[in-house]
């Protein structure tokens, strides 16, 4: 029951956040020709996918949390 309540609260919270975010979005951002910096490879959210996948594997094996950035998924029987 407790868990369900937390879950409900979190979902409500995230919905409210994204609604606020979306309505505020139209005033944010850049024109298409102002993306010179954003277009850089280094500015991609996952700019080093190989490093990210190696790190995911390490931390998945050593800590109790996985995913978040992308899918946590299944994995390995690694120790």
């Amino acid at each position: 029951m407790k868990v369900v309540n937390i879950y409900k609260r979190l979902v409500t919270l995230s919905l409210v956040c994204s609604a606020v975010g979306l309505s505020g979005c139209t005033s944010l951002g850049v024109e298409p020709w102002e993306r010179d910096l954003l277009a850089k490879k280094e500015m991609a959210l996952t700019s080093a996918p190989i490093d990210a996948s190696l790190d995911d594997h390490i931390y998945f094996s050593k800590e109790a949390t996985s995913g978040g950035r992308s899918f946590g998924g299944g994995g390995c029987g690694c120790n």
């Binding site: 979190l10 995230s14 956040c17 994204s18 975010g21 979306l22 979005c25 944010l28 951002g29 850049v30 102002e34 993306r35 010179d36 910096l37 954003l38 500015m43 959210l45 995913g67 978040g68 950035r69 992308s70 899918f71 946590g72 998924g73």
Partner: peptide, 21 residues
């Protein structure tokens, strides 16, 4: 796994991503 995300360009220098999974 379910993943929901919002990516928002803030200005010429800044981009933000929020995910719920």
């Amino acid at each position: 796994d379910l993943l929901f995300g919002v990516t928002q360009v803030i200005n010429r220098q800044m981009i933000v991503q929020l995910n719920y999974s």
